[in-house]
Amino acid sequence: MSIEPYQRGKSWWARGRVEYHGVPITGYYRCSTGASTEAGAWQWCREEEERQVRRHLLGEEEQLTFAEAVMLYPAKANEARYLLKIVPELGDTPCAQITPRAVRALAKKLYPTASTDTWLRQVITPVKAVINNAHDAGKCPPIRIKTFSTAERVEQDKARDKVSRRERKPGSWEWIDQFSQHASPYLSALAEFMFETGARVGQAVALTPKDIDMKSLRVMLPASKGHPAQWVAISPEMAIKLANLPPRRPKDRRRGVLLEPRVFGYSRNTGPLKAWRTACKNAGIDYLPPHSAGRHGFYTELRVRQGVDPITAAKAGRWSNPALPDKIYAHNETSDSDVRTMIRSTRVHRPGGKTLKAMKGGKE
């Protein structure tokens, strides 16, 4: 028989033997696939069968080390920075011998005072990406590493005496108006643009004059987070605000060159941060990062304050899954005391101590 998956609790396991022309070439499997879905478990079984048949025909597979796997991986700048700390720890270890438990332990070792979110972003994710990229090239088995649970996150926050995942405060029109009174025209327009369109700060600062279609009242937002570049409608008021901003050519300080003209005049997403913080301070308002003031404010404005349905709000903000923004970007703005008042306001007062059944004309 071949390896086949079966469900055990909430996870999927594998059982059976790998056969070649009807002859077993491995021992009996009874192990976890690390998958949470049946499709993922079947994929694990097929990949394991292919690996064992290849080993049976060609002999022991080449033991690709993690350092060699890193050389195969097209790492981005941030990933490369994280991998510089990981390679000295795992570099000489064959990828096939790296276990999920070892990777999770390494995260705690490298960043003992960091949050579990940091462990996931700076260790778990890059290690998985490197090994699975090598697996795609047929160099080693894949690896699946579960994320840290809520209990682990709470335990680590307690150990480092610091709370992670603080609730974001979304922007509002009142916040935007106060902010704009103490910001430059470019910074004010940037904040209002993100709040109106739900654009990310990186998308907004990358806009060039050719990306604006004033006649059709729309802008071409750059690709971001796996979504393609696309036209997004803007209001007439926003169009006027953008039309009154002479494009500026920001300087790339790293290369010492002037870039092409940008609508808001910044070279990259970090460009407005210093002035942004100063404007908040001078306005005497809470400091809201651009993402909170813009994208979080955009969705909360539509979904919570104006009651727009989740499908429409998600589409307007270019979320493919409507459940995601409701979970992350919609922020409650009703206090607990107001909730209690709302609950008690609907209480049925029964005069004379009568039961509800008696009040409706029924018998006691």
Rank of each mutant, 00 (worst) to 15 (best):
M71F: 05
Y73F: 14
Y73W: 09
A75R: 12
K76L: 14
K76V: 12
A77N: 11
A77C: 14
A77G: 08
A77V: 15
E79R: 08
E79V: 15
A80S: 15
A80Q: 15
R81A: 13
R81E: 08
R81Y: 03
V87N: 13
V87L: 13
P88Y: 03
P88H: 04
E89S: 13
E89W: 11
L90D: 01
L90A: 04
G91H: 07
T93A: 05
P94K: 00
C95M: 07
C95K: 00
A96G: 04
A96R: 02
I98W: 06
I98C: 07
P100E: 00
P100S: 02
A102H: 00
A102W: 00
A102I: 07
R104M: 09
R104C: 10
A105S: 09
A105P: 11
A107E: 10
A107R: 01
L110C: 11
Y111I: 01
Y111W: 13
P112L: 01
P112K: 07
T113A: 15
A114D: 09
S115N: 13
T116Y: 06
D117K: 08
D117S: 11
W119Y: 15
L120N: 15
L120G: 14
R121N: 07
R121V: 00
V123Q: 10
V123A: 12
I124Q: 05
P126W: 00
V127M: 06
A129Y: 02
V130H: 01
V130K: 01
N132H: 02
N132L: 02
H135W: 12
H135I: 01
H135T: 08
D136P: 02
G138R: 03
G138S: 03
G138D: 02
